[in-house]
Amino acid sequence: MTADSEHQFWYNMRTGKVEQGPQSQSIDRVGPFATELEASHALEKLRANSAKWAEDDARDER
């Protein structure tokens, strides 16, 4: 773990908790995020990105 990663935050998809530094297996976490608050909203960010990508794909198919 690098010094920089110790100051970043991840959202653990399996536990639903925010972790400071990469504490769990990479397959279970999303991030890194600069703040704990950003990490706590990881699922909302993922949903928003997914919706945007779906819109972009639909627009490209026209």
Rank of each mutant, 00 (worst) to 15 (best):
A48H: 06
T2N: 07
G16V: 00
E6C: 08
Q20V: 08
T15A: 10
V18R: 06
G16T: 01
N49A: 08
E6T: 06
H41C: 05
L46A: 00
T15H: 11
G21L: 10
L46H: 07
A54E: 08
E36R: 15
N12I: 03
D28K: 10
F9Y: 15
I27S: 11
R47E: 06
D28P: 00
N49R: 09
G31R: 09
T15E: 12
D4H: 08
W53C: 02
V30P: 00
A54M: 05
S50V: 00
S50L: 01
S40K: 12
K17A: 07
N12G: 05
V18Q: 01
S26D: 15
S26P: 07
M1A: 06
N49L: 03
K17H: 07
I27F: 14
T35L: 13
S50N: 02
L37C: 07
G21I: 03
P32N: 13
A51I: 01
G31V: 05
W53T: 00
R47M: 03
L37I: 07
D57K: 10
S24H: 06
G31E: 14
D60H: 10
F9K: 02
A48L: 06
F33A: 02
Q20S: 11
E55V: 00
S50T: 00
A54R: 04
Q8K: 15
W53E: 04
E61H: 08
R47S: 08
E44N: 10
R62K: 04
Q23T: 02
Q20F: 10
S26G: 12
R29N: 11
W10K: 04
T15S: 13
A54I: 00
L37P: 10
Q25V: 03
L37T: 02
D28V: 07
A3R: 11
I27T: 01
P22F: 13
P32S: 12
V18C: 07
E6V: 05
R29A: 14
F9H: 09
S50H: 02
K52Q: 13
D28Q: 13
R59I: 09
L43S: 04
P32M: 07
I27W: 15
W53Q: 04
Q8S: 14
